[in-house]
């Protein structure tokens, strides 16, 4: 029996995958609406009251927090490997991990605070 080393890699990969699914399913439509359709005047944006009702619903708050965290885990994992393989800088591993997962932590806290403070 080989000694099993405790590794986070499978967990990080699962979070990456879950984030990948969220990214594929919801980002295109949201970017299309808020990034292009409303700014370019193709469609008129929803009223503030409506946005508040949509985002402020307890279910939305939880969904937004979880989705943002998963999306950031998706970014962190992929970006980390892009730096390893694309630039061949695996020797800077500690710095890369700090940058990527530090980013996840900061972004996730920000997301949590922002949905919590919604009136």
């Amino acid at each position: 029996m080989v000694k099993r080393t405790l590794t986070l890699e499978p967990l990080l990969w699962l979070l990456f995958s879950a984030g990948g699914v969220v990214a594929a399913l919801v980002i295109p439509v949201l970017l299309l609406l808020f990034g292009l359709a409303f700014p370019l005047g193709w469609l008129s944006p929803p009223s503030h009251a409506h946005m508040l009702a949509v985002l402020g619903h307890p279910l939305s708050r939880v969904t937004i927090f979880v989705s943002c965290t998963l999306l950031l885990f998706h970014w962190a994992h992929r970006f980390r490997y892009t730096l390893y393989d694309g630039l061949q800088i695996k020797h800077l591993n500690e710095l890369i991990v700090l940058l990527c997962y530090g980013g996840v932590l900061v972004g996730s806290i920000a997301a949590g605070y922002l949905v919590w403070q919604l009136p």
């Binding site: 080989v2 099993r4 590794t7 890699e9 490997y81």
Partner: peptide, 17 residues
Amino acid sequence: GERLDILSQHEGIWACT
């Protein structure tokens, strides 16, 4: 199970992008 112990090491499967 035995193979997983070998392959779940970093150089095993997780290095594949």
